[in-house]
Design a protein around this nucleic acid. Structure first.
Length: 271
DNA sequence: AGAAAATCCTGGTGGC
DNA sequence: TGCCACCAGGATTTTC
C-alpha cells in the first residue's frame, strides 16, 4: 500500500530519467478515481520539467501545467524505454522521447489529474488540506505538539488523517507508535511532552529508513524501475498479529480503529 | 460550524 | 469449482 516512502521511492526511481522528456502520446484505460481533466491530445508536445512530491501525491511538472498522480492503494508506476504489452490493469500511459511512463492499478483507487496550476481549485482541494511533510524541515515539533493537543481522537487516527502530518499510512503509523512506545489507542490530546518528542522523532526515523529500504512490498509494490522494497522485513508489529514481539516476546495484538487494523505490543507500548 | 465517524469505490484472496 | 465475506487508502458524506 503506497504510503510516503513508496511514493518517494517511486519518485526517486524515475525523476531524473524523465526530466526534459517531451510527451509524444497519452492513452488511458479504465476510469480511475477522477477524470484526467484535459484532453489526452493536449498533453502531446508538453515537456516534463521535473517530478516532485507532496504527501502521497507525485507532482509531474510540465511546461504547460501539472499532472498530479496518486497511487491509491494498489497503484504502481513504471518508467522504461520499453515495457511489456499493455495489461488489463494498466490505466494510464504516457509515451515520451525518453521512455514510457505507465500506471498499473488493479483497484483503480489511484488517479492522474491535470491542472494548469497548483493554485487551481482542484489542486487546492486535493493538496490544500495536507499536513506537514515529515521528512522536511517543515515538520516542526511545536506545531506537531499543539496540533495533537487540539484533537479529540486517538493518536493512531490522527496520524492516519493526514491533516497534521502527511504520508503516514497504516503500516508506518503502527511502526512509528511502536518505536515511540506509545499505545495506538491513547488520546492524542493526552500524550505527555516526552511522548510527543519521541513520536516526532520516530515518524521521521521510520519513514527515512523505509525510503532507504526501497519502501515496503506487501503484495506487488515496486518502484518505477521495477525494484521491490524490503522494509516489510523490518516491521516490528505491522502484519504480525499473534506473533511474538521482536523486542520482548509478548504476543502482538491486532485491533480495529476506524475500520482499520492496528498492530501493537501490549508490553512495549503501555500508554 | 467543525470535528469525528461512517461510507464508498474495486478486485484479489482465502475459507468453505 | 464457485461463492462470498473480507480487506485496503482516503475523499466524500453523514452524524454528532
Amino acid at each position: 500500500m503506497p504510503e510516503l516512502p513508496e511514493v518517494e521511492v517511486t519518485r526517486l526511481s524515475f525523476a531524473q530519467a524523465i526530466q526534459g522528456a517531451v510527451v509524444m502520446a497519452v492513452t488511458m484505460g479504465k476510469p480511475l478515481r477522477w477524470p484526467l481533466g484535459c484532453d489526452v491530445a493536449f498533453l502531446t508536445g508538453c515537456r516534463v520539467l521535473g517530478v516532485g512530491r507532496r504527501g502521497k501525491y507525485l507532482l509531474i511538472e510540465l511546461d504547460q501545467g501539472w499532472l498530479l498522480v496518486h497511487l491509491g492503494m494498489s497503484g504502481s508506476l513504471r518508467f522504461a524505454k520499453q515495457l511489456p504489452p499493455v495489461g488489463i490493469h494498466d490505466h494510464f500511459e504516457m509515451v515520451t522521447t525518453q521512455g514510457i511512463l505507465r500506471l498499473n492499478d488493479p483497484r483503480r483507487f489511484g488517479a492522474v489529474v491535470y491542472v494548469q496550476s497548483l493554485t487551481d481549485a482542484l489542486a487546492v482541494k486535493l493538496l490544500g488540506q495536507l499536513g506537514m511533510e515529515p521528512l522536511s524541515e517543515s515538520f516542526d515539533l511545536k506545531l506537531f505538539a499543539s496540533g495533537l493537543r487540539q484533537r479529540k481522537t486517538t493518536i493512531k487516527q490522527v496520524l492516519m488523517a493526514g491533516d497534521l502530518v502527511v504520508g503516514v499510512g497504516n503500516i508506518y503509523a503502527s511502526e512509528a507508535l511502536f518505536m515511540a512506545a506509545i499505545r495506538p489507542t491513547v488520546s492524542a490530546a493526552d500524550l505527555s511532552r516526552i511522548r510527543v518528542v519521541r513520536l516526532h522523532a520516530a515518524i521521521k526515523d521510520v519513514l527515512a529508513r523505509a525510503v532507504e529500504k526501497g519502501g515496503s512490498t506487501l503484495k506487488d509494490f515496486s518502484s518505477a524501475n521495477g525494484q521491490a522494497g524490503y522494509f516489510q522485513l523490518e516491521a516490528m508489529v505491522y502484519g504480525r498479529a499473534n506473533m511474538p514481539c521482536k523486542r520482548c516476546d509478548s504476543t502482538i495484538q491486532m485491533i480495529r480503529q476506524g475500520q482499520r487494523s492496528t498492530f501493537y505490543c501490549p508490553v512495549c507500548q503501555k500508554h
